[in-house]
Design a binder for these strands. Structure first.
Length: 584
DNA sequence: GGGAGATGTCATATA
DNA sequence: TTTATATGACATCTC
């Protein structure tokens, strides 16, 4: 750039500069190439005029057991159920007091389970917080997958018996947000005809891989005393005959919320790119860290290993192909040394790192001199540029593969011409200006030695300027290469971070499924106990209480009271509002 | 001929 | 202040 500006300042060098111009023009560079230079030159001239024309140019330059248990007997889906449960029921049944027994005994038996319903709320709250974060990713819901999940074939027992009621607030596109709000689930009663089917239906969505043997659900529940969970007592026969049409259950809301949460989880799973099978398998893969196949095959970083190997293998070829490396000045270290665009690479250049040595080996592009090595990066196959701007492509072709005839004629003249064409602009300039040392020295020598070198020779102002320019450009070229490599390395690290985060997210998702399942089982136990206790209560005439008129009320101190249903309903509504208000 | 990617260069900021 | 280095922006080149 700036060397032309010396045109006006150093008339003695006009001839040399003319030569340089001619060279550039010969090399295909038109005068317009120097337009900017002209502007710069004008500025320089102005500056010089202002400064009195005296200044020289210094151009600035990450529980198998739980899984096993669950897979054995689920009360809801036929998938799993805790083996210890019947034993618990038996013990509790024995302990169920007659109406004359004091409530204290009941408390001692029931309170541990009943109080256990507190923490799940907090747990769910935490999960909902987490899910709300995840939800921030506005991902499109896979409708087709939803259809598979929610629209089972008519012949399917699950769908036949437990399909969603038409007016259920759950639709195929139920979103995490909708479920998380819990507005609808909170209003449900477990014994409500509209809702009693809901949990089963939800479960069917959760476990699409479980054989549809749900026709045996009733027998399954009877045998496990769990039928009261999902069916009104008049249906499973464990309660009295006077049951009304609606038997609200104090645990219905909790259970439903958990179910809805699972729906939202499934939804999330779909949104997150899991297919229905993958989502259902989530529950079966707790032990498998790689339960999810994160498709990283397209990630550049996944190419690292192959790239690394190819890079290491290319290191030798880079030096062996030095003669054809005119297009690249990369050294073995990945191109941090400066080779001044020349055809030779000396040791100094081969080692020529400039402090920063990232994992450049990943990048085939960093050692692309052998195009065959680009096979590991198909999208880079085309890379193989020639950036010796001073060479015509034809010249380069002949340079890479000199025909035998040419070699035969191989006169020194042509060889010199060949070498001449291999040289960079700066080398041409240096030669034209008769700089008495190599560009490598100019660029790579420490300042002190560089200055020493300059002092050894009597150099004109134009020569000194050119030398400084060469040094500046050379160093900046290496800096630019390092900068670009650092950028690529940063991108790779970020890609790795993204993959790690995706793995963490998948793990958290699996953990949530596990927690929700535990919660569901706990609620089932409590519900079963409720039914057991209520079914055995007798009034003064020895008749069972009607679930439509009475309900068991859990007191804050752990005691259990038998209160009229209307009172229970009022209190239930009051409790439902609290969490809603809390969410607001 | 034009787009994409690689590279060189300049200007500028910072150490 | 000088020098080296880092980086955005642009120009140019090759495919």
């Amino acid at each position: 750039m700036g060397w032309e500006s010396r045109l006006t300042a150093a008339s003695a060098d006009i001839d040399l500069i003319d030569i340089l111009w001619r060279q550039d023009i010969d090399l295909g560079a038109g005068r317009e190439v120097f337009d900017y230079s002209h502007r710069q030159k004008e500025q320089d001239v102005d500056k010089e005029l202002r400064d009195g024309g005296e200044q020289a140019d210094t151009w600035a330059g990450e529980g198998a057991e739980a899984l096993a248990r669950d897979l054995l007997v689920d009360g809801e889906t036929g998938e799993s159920f805790p083996a210890q449960f019947p034993a618990n029921v038996a013990s509790i049944t024995e302990a169920v007091p007659s109406e004359s027994e004091p409530p204290a005994l009941q408390n001692s038996l029931l309170s541990p389970l009943l109080t256990g319903t507190e923490s799940p709320f907090d747990l769910e709250q935490q999960w909902q917080d987490l899910m709300s974060i995840m939800e921030m990713q506005a991902m499109e819901v896979n409708t087709s997958a939803s259809e598979i999940l929610y629209n089972a074939p008519p012949g399917d027992p699950l769908s036949t018996n437990y399909s969603l009621a038409p007016n259920t607030p759950i639709n195929q596109n139920v979103s995490l947000h909708q479920a998380s709000l819990g507005g609808c689930s909170q209003d449900f009663s477990l014994f409500s005809p509209e809702v009693e089917n809901l949990p089963v239906a939800n479960s069917s969505t959760l476990l699409p891989l479980v054989p549809s043997n749900s026709t045996s659900l009733n027998s399954t529940f009877s045998s496990t005393n769990l039928a009261g969970l999902f069916f009104p007592p008049q249906l499973n026969g464990t309660a009295n005959d006077t049951a009304g049409p609606e038997l609200p259950d104090p645990l219905g809301g909790l259970l439903d919320e958990a179910m809805l949460d699972e729906i939202s989880l499934m939804d999330l799973a779909i949104e997150e790119g899991f297919n229905p099978v993958q989502a259902s398998q989530l529950e079966e893969e707790f032990d498998s860290d790689s339960g999810l196949s994160l498709d990283s095959s397209h990630s550049p970083s996944s190419l690292s290993s192959s790239e690394g190997s190819s890079s290491s293998s290319s290191s030798s070829s880079s030096s062996s192909s030095a003669s054809s490396s005119a297009s690249s000045s990369f050294s073995e270290e990945g191109a941090v040394g400066y080779s001044s665009d020349s055809e030779t690479l000396d040791l100094e250049e081969a080692e020529g790192a400039v402090g920063y040595q990232p994992e450049y080996s990943k990048f085939c592009r960093m050692s692309y001199q052998d195009p065959s090595q680009l096979s590991c990066l198909p999208y880079l196959e085309h890379v193989g540029h020639n950036h010796t701007y001073n060479m015509a492509p034809s010249a380069l072709d002949s340079a890479d593969l000199p025909p035998p005839s040419t070699l035969k004629k191989g006169s020194k003249e042509k060889q010199a011409d060949f070498l001449d064409k291999q040289m960079s602009r700066d080398e041409h300039r240096a030669r034209a200006m008769k700089i008495p040392f190599t560009n490598d020295k100019i660029i790579n020598l420490p300042v002190e030695e560089f200055n020493e070198l300059l002092s050894k020779y009597q150099l004109s102002e134009a020569q000194l300027s050119l030398i400084r320019d060469i040094r500046r450009r050379g160093k900046n070229k290496m800096a630019a290469q390092n900068c670009r490599k650092r950028k690529l390395d940063t991108i790779l690290n970020l890609e790795r971070d993204v993959e790690d985060l995706q793995r963490d997210k998948a793990r958290l998702l699996r953990e949530k499924v596990e927690f929700l399942r535990s919660l569901r089982q706990m609620k089932q136990k409590v519900q079963s106990l409720y039914q057991e206790v209520f079914g055995r209560l007798r009034d003064e005439n020895g008749r069972p209480y009607s679930p439509s008129q009475y309900a068991l009320q859990y007191a804050g101190d752990g005691s259990v009271l038998l209160i009229p249903r209307t009172m229970a309903d009022q209190q239930a509504r009051r409790q439902e509002r609290k969490p809603k208000d809390r969410r607001k």
